[in-house]
Design a protein around this nucleic acid. Structure first.
Lengths: 244, 244
DNA sequence: CGATTACTTGAGCCTGTTCAACAACCGTGG
DNA sequence: CCACGGTTGTTGAACAGGCTCAAGTAATCG
């Protein structure tokens, strides 16, 4: 399974439609093709302190953001306060794609974070001029859909241990995709965030970490650094081949 | 909350970008603007018998479909057979939007169903000529994302009763949006499908229906026709104002 | 009309929750 | 430097919601 945001890193962030664009009949762009990522790279930077919100549900959607450093927790709350973390966004991930005029969830930095922010109005202008950008947005949205579907299946069908291990393995795969150590994970969020992501209580998350440690499958430093010992056993665990 | 597919019906299915298109600088369409829905309405019809699959996960994605009559169950399965229903698609709903080259889930007709099917290749040609169509696809994808996020929150955070009532109320709202009776629901799927959608066993679904009936909040005819009695009490139940 | 599939209901069990206490960590200020 | 309070994480014990297993009933279809 993909980390929800991992999809964005799984391909070059340049639209595969760009090469075709200039040759579309009836469409003669007089500008230099620029990818979505290019636009975001140029956008102004904004710093957010740990625990501060970038936006909250219901806010008018004014910008889309790309995380430069740090981590962001995207979540929704039910009327009675129950919280569900939809996704985490890490460096490179884009937040807020979509055409609604309101934010559909809350975005809170879990640690000190920097993001670039680009006005949606600008994006709409660009996208309506440039079908390649619009298609790239479709692509990104489809990948987000694929990822959240996988997460839905995971969280609804899997046991506590399977969920947590799936989460760790997704982070590991993400690390590998970035050329970083696949066995060493930094968790830039609290147990509460992880619990609300996986649909578990903080106690169950903690207990499950302890169990994995006792099984010799992971090591934990200061709560936030995880070292994966037996990747293959962990994969088996995640898939319910329950040796424990 | 929206029924997952309801989003598609919540707005006219004509792109709001159409009026702008002819005036885009550098883009001179020499054809009559046609909406995504128009294209789908013209597409050839295909009949599927109850329990037959339209496609399965991993199949090359060749078409997108629009349900004309009947109902379709979209689901994924884990390696060990656990099943999660992602969504149901009813008349008017579009299945398979997105730019992956493979189907990401299974689509099975729950009852005898007719769909129109349009080749994705045709859609890509249209979308790369017509930024309005591409933007309309983005819009549809965002709505699908919003809906699945809501469903994720519901299924992970809510109790069995809350989930089932939320499901019934979504169907009711959908009926109302179509000008049909909001109090009378047809359930064109089995208890197993409902259970796998809500992350519950068939027994719990059945028991919960019985409980709602005992509370006098619904009536059930032949298992498939539900009549909602106390909408306001049901809404309270769905939000966890647990009078039961 | 019998066979099959779908649904309902019951009883006991299990996973993860709740409630509670405790430990570790961290920044602040004396 | 350490004492202190607040936050975050860990662990234990009892509970409960939904699951499993099992039996029985209703609807459907050849």
């Amino acid at each position: 399974m993909l980390t929800l945001r991992e999809a964005y890193q799984s391909k070059e962030f340049h639209t595969p439609f760009s090469p075709m664009r200039a040759h579309q009949p009836g469409c003669l762009p007089a500008y230099t093709p620029v990818s979505l990522a290019d636009h975001l790279d140029r956008a102004p930077l904004r710093g957010i302190e740990a625990k501060d919100h970038i936006f909250t549900e219901g806010d008018p959607k004014l910008h889309i953001y790309q995380v430069v450093t740090g981590a962001v927790c995207l979540y929704k709350v039910l009327p009675d306060g129950r919280r569900q973390v939809i996704d985490f966004a890490y460096a490179g991930d884009i937040i807020g794609l979509g055409l609604s005029d309101r934010e559909g969830y809350n975005a809170q930095a879990t640690v000190a974070t920097r993001v670039t922010c680009m006005p949606v109005s600008a994006l709409q202008v660009i996208a309506s001029k440039d079908p390649g950008i619009a298609m790239r947005m479709c692509e990104a949205l489809s990948e987000e859909l694929t990822a959240i579907r996988d997460h839905l299946v995971c969280v609804v069908q899997r046991s506590a241990t399977e969920r947590l291990v799936t989460f760790l393995l997704a982070l590991s795969r993400r690390n590998k995709a970035r050329g970083r150590d696949a066995d060493t994970l930094e968790l830039p969020m609290t147990r509460t965030d992880i619990g609300d992501f996986l649909g578990l209580t903080i106690e169950t998350v903690s207990r499950t970490f302890s169990k994995l440690k006792a099984l010799g499958l992971i090591e934990i430093d200061q709560g936030t650094t995880i070292r994966l010992i037996g990747i293959s056993e962990l994969i088996a665990l995640a898939d319910g081949n329950t040796s424990a």
